[in-house]
Design a protein around this nucleic acid. Structure first.
Lengths: 232, 232
DNA sequence: TTTTTCTCTTGATATTTATCAAGCCTAAAG
DNA sequence: CTTTAGGCTTGATAAATATCAAGAGAAAAA
């Protein structure tokens, strides 16, 4: 694994404060790999041999059951995924596939657990990260159970807008097909939902979204920090 | 806080291996309280001042948005709840109310965080618990997104049956009203779903459930360890 | 005990969401 | 450049789920 990647990985919250030699120990056992698009990195149910870090590209976390499939999350650089399985040494609950050409670091789970045991700062960082992940999924469950699909889409758009620094116009970062799955609906319904949001000043053309009436949309979406603020 | 409760609390995975004086430090700041039924212990959005431990009775974790409410989980003795909020020192994401007369231990969140910093075994236990919680919510999200309400009910019954050591007949532990909310449907629909499971040999009378055709029900429900096994 | 309250159930209906089929459009492949 | 494949949209229809209304039954209160 080339040392050139070390600084960007080191900057992740997870690795920030840990002892340098522990970090190096982790990196020693790790390796980088380049994947083409649409490659399945992880199959749910497999033993969790590696902690994954996305350096570039993007990865879809999804799950299947009874020939149905649903998108659970999209992982973007630079961040890790599958931490909980790594820590518990339990099988992966979600599958993962690259959405585009991606560079991924694989850190052996054993090493992560070993360093966890001897580096209290790293342990603390893992706890924070896990708590964060847990709270994110709880929020997403609330979103699913308390809102209709139209409301979920409206709030999704507002969250994306926040990510785009509040600009009235921004691009969707994932294709609509997968956005539909992520929001728990069919692609057909997503199309209709976009049309339904016309009434609240939402214009969509391809991947371009324009929110022409912020107030109206917010009054309809009723965003709540306890569901939509993924930073806390 | 009476010492008589120490042993049962000490036996929780979370407190098992930690140093005795650290455990005592935690207990020193804690206090027990008895609550009548239907008391709201926690209001989502409040700062997380205490880690809660249910000694007896039961607690419903629920969330609200836009005058809608949904039940997220039921906490039974002996276990803790609201660990993630405590650790992150972030606002509670769920509200909590007693379902029956309950005895609850309140451990100041500050103390938990302080002991976390100095007791590596406790830190490890917290990580394991958080990872467990995270994985449980992921499973529940998969359940919601991949299954119809009839399938969710069928799998719920199979899980409850497992809890009842596989007996063909067992009791529902929560009222149907809340079960419906937990499963993400209306009470009316739950009634109809129970009737829909007649076809697979499920008989319900009051809180009594009888699974007369295990094979049929399982073939319909298609339970999966990656969704339904909450122990891993 | 009687009364009252609330859960549970059922039927009728409305709404939401999914499915199916077809055509459009874009982008990749030849 | 043309062709082809696949995502996206639309309309028609079907299925799933929610809502409303009413009544039965059980538990709590008087």
């Amino acid at each position: 694994m080339p040392k050139s990647h070390f600084p960007e990985i080191r900057e992740l919250d997870l690795f920030q404060g840990m002892q340098e030699d522990h970090f190096l120990a982790l990196m020693r056992g790790a390796y980088v790999q380049n994947f083409p698009p649409q490659i399945e990195l992880i199959n749910e149910g497999d033993p969790s041999d590696f902690l994954h870090i996305v350096l570039s590209g993007s990865v879809d976390l999804f799950s299947t059951w009874n020939r149905r499939e649903t998108s659970m999350a999209t992982v973007r650089p630079i961040s890790t995924f599958i931490l909980a399985a790594t820590i518990k040494d339990a099988p992966y609950l979600m599958s993962a596939r690259t959405l585009e050409k991606s560079r991924i670091v694989l850190v052996p789970s054993e090493d992560v657990r070993a360093v966890f045991d001897i580096d209290p700062v790293f342990a603390q960082a893992i706890v924070t990260e896990l708590a964060q992940c847990y709270r994110s999924v709880v929020k997403s469950t609330k979103d699913l159970k308390l809102r209709t699909s139209l409301e979920r889409l409206a709030n999704y758009l507002l969250r994306q807008q926040t990510r785009a620094d509040g600009a009235a116009e921004f691009d969707l970062l994932i294709e609509k097909r997968r956005l539909a799955s992520f929001l728990g609906m069919t692609p057909e319904n997503l199309s209709r939902a976009f049309k339904g949001l016309h009434a609240y000043g939402v214009m969509v053309e391809g991947i371009k979204v324009r929110i022409s009436n912020q107030r109206d949309l917010e009054r309809f979406a009723k965003p709540s920090p306890l569901i939509d603020d993924y930073s806390t």
